[in-house]
């Protein structure tokens, strides 16, 4: 069980460094892709909803404490969005989900939910309209995140497809 979670946690460390050091350089007016969410979504689609929900919770906690942000915000948003990703999981659909462009759709939808939830929790002084929040803090980061899922679709070995 622990070993099952060890691989994503080990992958989390370099990805978190990239997320905090390199991703800010490619952000467009504070809209940035979330590489940690891609990691969570990938493993959720491989291992299932329960696994993904727990993984989202653990990695969210780790990202919260190393990023200097609001502790609990990523934890909550990753847990919920990984749960939603889990709905796309199917034992017979693992390859279809990960190796096809459908992965980008999953990353876009669930990445948008993740960014939106994070914004709602962390923005304590919000007079911003719900539409603006959904667009700028949900859909646009979701799109950017989905774009970064492209290498997985291209380079992931396509077994039995």
């Amino acid at each position: 069980m622990i070993i099952q979670y060890l691989k994503p946690i080990l992958l989390f460390i370099p990805l978190a460094v990239i997320q905090l050091v390199i991703v800010p350089l490619i952000s467009i007016s504070n809209i940035a892709p979330n590489l940690i969410f891609i990691l969570i979504a990938y493993f959720t689609l491989k291992q299932g909803q329960v696994y993904g929900t727990i993984l989202g919770f653990i990695l969210g906690f780790l990202l919260d404490i190393i990023s200097g942000g609001l502790t609990g915000a990523f934890m909550f948003s990753f847990t919920l969005s990984a749960f939603v990703v889990g709905y796309f999981y199917g034992e017979n659909k693992i390859d279809i989900n990960i190796s096809s462009y459908f992965l980008l759709f999953i990353l876009f939808v669930c990445g948008s939910i993740n960014s939106f939830l994070y914004a709602v929790i962390s923005n304590s002084y919000s007079n911003v309209s719900l539409f603006f929040m959904m667009l700028e803090e949900g859909i646009l980061p979701g799109l950017y995140t989905a774009l970064f899922g492209l290498p997985i679709v291209i380079f992931h070995p396509k077994e039995g497809m």
């Binding site: 050091v21 940035a32 990023s67 942000g69 915000a73 962390s122 980061p141």
Partner: peptide, 14 residues
């Protein structure tokens, strides 16, 4: 600055 948390509502630097 050695790292930044880039989100729309939580501007933080380390």
């Amino acid at each position: 600055i050695i790292s930044k948390l880039v989100t729309k509502s939580q501007g933080n630097f380390i």
